[in-house]
Amino acid sequence: MAEEEKPFICFKNGWNMKIEPRNRKGWLYLSLWMLALLPIVFTFTWLMNRELSTAQSAAFITGFTLVMIGWGFAMSRWMKVRSEVIDMNLMIDFMREREAQKKRGRR
């Protein structure tokens, strides 16, 4: 049985990761994650447009920041599990090794 194509592709270079949608399913999942962000942003905007004390404003901003960090972490973990991971360090090493083999063959 053939393995199903993963909806995301993850380019990993040490601690840096770049996750991109790979196909239509990936774009759909990314859109759903973005739609899930709308109620959070609208609630925060609605709360901040009221008459608030400084302490209330600080509490709402802190809460919004923590929710956004959690949302971003959850999204990145969820996408990474559903990604084809390409380690760029291994790719670069492979390309260097191949180039060295080509140079040795020319002599």
Rank of each mutant, 00 (worst) to 15 (best):
E5F: 03
L66S: 02
G70W: 07
F60V: 01
M17N: 05
L35T: 12
I92L: 07
T45I: 11
L32M: 14
R107I: 09
K18F: 09
A55M: 06
E51C: 01
M95E: 09
F94Y: 08
L30G: 08
C10D: 14
I69V: 15
E51T: 04
G63A: 10
M17I: 14
A58D: 05
L32P: 07
R82T: 01
I19A: 07
E51V: 03
C10G: 06
F11N: 07
M1R: 03
T43Y: 10
G26H: 10
K6M: 15
A100P: 00
R22C: 06
R22N: 15
R24P: 01
F8G: 06
F44Q: 03
W15D: 13
Y29L: 15
R24F: 13
I61T: 09
K103R: 08
M68G: 00
N49W: 10
T43F: 11
E51H: 06
M17Y: 04
F73E: 07
E3Y: 05
A58V: 06
N89K: 04
M79H: 06
G72Q: 11
L30T: 09
A74Q: 02
R106Y: 05
M1S: 08
T45M: 13
A36C: 09
L30Y: 14
G14Y: 08
W33E: 10
V67H: 00
D87L: 08
W27Q: 14
I69L: 14
P21T: 12
F11Y: 15
K102N: 04
E20V: 15
A74Y: 09
K18L: 13
G26T: 10
R104A: 15
A2H: 07
K6A: 12
G63P: 00
L32F: 12
T43W: 14
E5C: 02
E99A: 05
S57D: 02
F64A: 00
R98D: 03
R22M: 11
M48Q: 10
S83P: 01
M48T: 03
